[in-house]
Nucleic acid binder design. Structure first.
Lengths: 214, 214, 214, 214
DNA sequence: TATGAATGAGCGTTCATTCAT
DNA sequence: TATGAATGAACGCTCATTCAT
């Protein structure tokens, strides 16, 4: 049962949503508060009732995003998926996880882009991102890998390197699909690419038969 | 023998260098021209003799960077390495290429960071990056992979996906090393990480013996 | 009963008044917005809340002047005078009209001077002046002349030339009175000059008796 | 025999000519020295070798114009015309003078416009204009009128008013022809207008027969 | 709580002016 | 003598922020 939102909460939401969208389009510094007010359909003064400094608006909205999605949607469901699919083969599990993750990623690409960009310039964000996101993601990822190593399904290599490499491969794929989709003639769908990437990571690209010959 | 640079060229260089450093530290929009002038040790007016609009300073300095390093250092040497090491095993070649690339990457991390950030907001940059960098890099990378597929050393999988995945894995490694070096207890040097990553890509992470059993 | 003006209207009025006075004293281009703000007793930023570009301030204030005085005071009262004095002799009518016009002219000399000067450099103003002022004035003036020609009181000559000539004579008189009042020993008051000018236009300066002799 | 102009004189001429043209197009304040330099085909620094302050450029070029044309072309030839045509009827003399004057006026409209505009804002110019131009013109004009009054050809009215009125009528005609030529359907050529204006001034516009009746 | 009006520091940019060559 | 490079004060304008209502 959804409780009726208070009016002030609605206003705050409108501000944050408008701000994030504009930050992602023009960058934080290049977005005037006047533009945010206009987009949110409120007066400029109102913004400062909710966020005394412009920077608060950035930090709060991203923190809120991390709290809401980082915890609830990025981390927990990981664990959720993990619990459900725990007994499946690694191959199948990782594919499910990635695909689900990407769906969220795309849906939340606006705050994510802002976060990844502004984290460069704002110390506060950096700490939040590292502590609330990166560490948790890596903790989960490496643990998962190590579980499967223990099970004997994966070979015993540095789990951080493995996990980070898979993430890097996936991330660059997503970036390319969105920024330069028709680079390199490639008709694969995202899901097909994911399958292929996972396959590469699992089986490698060396042609064993050939390499025997050498 | 280097000819003595003209005074105006020196000034222009100072402006560009200061600008790129500050853009990378604070972001383009958050860097006032007054700050650039101060750092370059010149007057603010002088900047505008060289770059009529602030944006010209961004675009020109990045274009110049791409022209100088994109062509001379990123693309050609790739081909150079490639010619020299062509007959080596893929494994050895790719390690050399990656390590050399990373060295350049680190040396030029300032303009690269600016480029990767600002490309989001400035159409002109996007076109330049895609046409002058991405396409060429991908063209070279996929060709290289395909060469080794033909030689029978690599299995026949989509070369774009393979190349992009390796790049992604490497990139995320570099980013992590620079932004959160002590995440996940990992004492590997960069070179060791590269060796490991290449190993993973070549041989995969599946434990073949175990998977047989399943 | 005048309703109390809204605060913003008062501010706008102050800006326009200060601007026009300064424009008339120093010229539009030579008047900084900072000076306008100071004279109006407001901050510089406020000016741009009302007039986004400095030029808007010029055009708006002159347009407003034309709308207020051009229509209400320059054109209509002409017609008003005309209706009332219609049956008088041309001589008496034209004197009344000129004198009344000059009174307004002097009272509004500030915006008029700005208008006459800046019309040279700004296309927008030119169109407004021609369409909203010149044409209407000339239309009225020529019609009036033609009425009196039909009545047989004036001889049948080109009404535009007649009207324009009277205006020119009056204008130059006003200009001289204001810029170089003591040029040529002339103790006539403005009203006396007007009477004289009208007399000259009506009766000419040729000495008929003398010219007969020649 | 024209002496060969010194190079520096040529440069100075180029500067003045360019400056006057641009001042007349954009106004003195709105014309940057850089634009003048460009138009004159010289470097910006050079201007300040000849005219240490921008204002010197305005005052010098207009003073020079007045000295050259005011004296040589505006005043003397007036006297010249006058001496030659002295014995003609006033009507013929004044027409010749006006037509010749207008020809010069048009040829020199650029500096004249600048002069008439900038005289409002620069005290120095005002003095020069009044002393070197206005007074002389009026002195000549009134004397001429008075001569003809003495001869009995013109009636005895204030010569300043007569002269100034004719000038005003002519000036407004010229202004209208150049700024709004197709206002009021009027196909008269400039010369025809002049003839008409002189006719009006000489004979007046009152219909004597009619006025008798009243 | 929300607004509209105002602020003023600071921004990108211009431009008259200087000066070494 | 003329230039090209540089200057820095001042300009038009923006924008985060304040505050009375």
């Amino acid at each position: 049962m959804k409780t009726k939102k208070k009016k002030s909460q609605i206003t705050e939401d409108k501000i944050i949503e408008s701000a994030l969208n504009l930050f992602s389009e023009y960058g934080y510094s290049a977005t005037p508060t006047s533009m945010i007010a206009k987009k949110a359909g409120i007066s400029e003064g109102t913004i400062f009732k909710y966020f005394p400094k412009k920077k608060d608006l950035l930090v709060s909205s991203l923190t809120r995003f991390i709290d809401k999605y980082g915890e609830k949607l990025v981390i927990s469901p990981l664990e959720n998926n993990y619990q459900i699919h725990k007994n499946e083969k690694f191959e199948d599990l990782i594919k499910v996880i990635i695909k689900e993750r990407i769906r969220l990623f795309i849906k939340q690409s606006v705050p994510i882009r802002v976060l990844l960009t502004e984290v460069q310039y704002h110390e506060e964000l950096r700490e939040i991102v590292i502590n609330k996101l990166s560490k948790k993601i890596i903790y989960f990822g490496t643990n998962m890998i190590e579980d499967y190593i223990k099970k004997g399904e994966l070979i015993d290599k540095n789990s951080l390197v493995i996990f980070r490499s898979i993430m890097g491969a996936i991330m660059l794929m997503v970036i390319q699909k969105f920024t330069a989709p028709n680079i390199g003639q490639n008709n694969l769908s995202m899901d097909e690419e994911i399958d292929l990437i996972v396959d590469i990571f699992l089986n490698g690209i060396k042609n064993s038969k050939a390499s025997d010959k050498i």
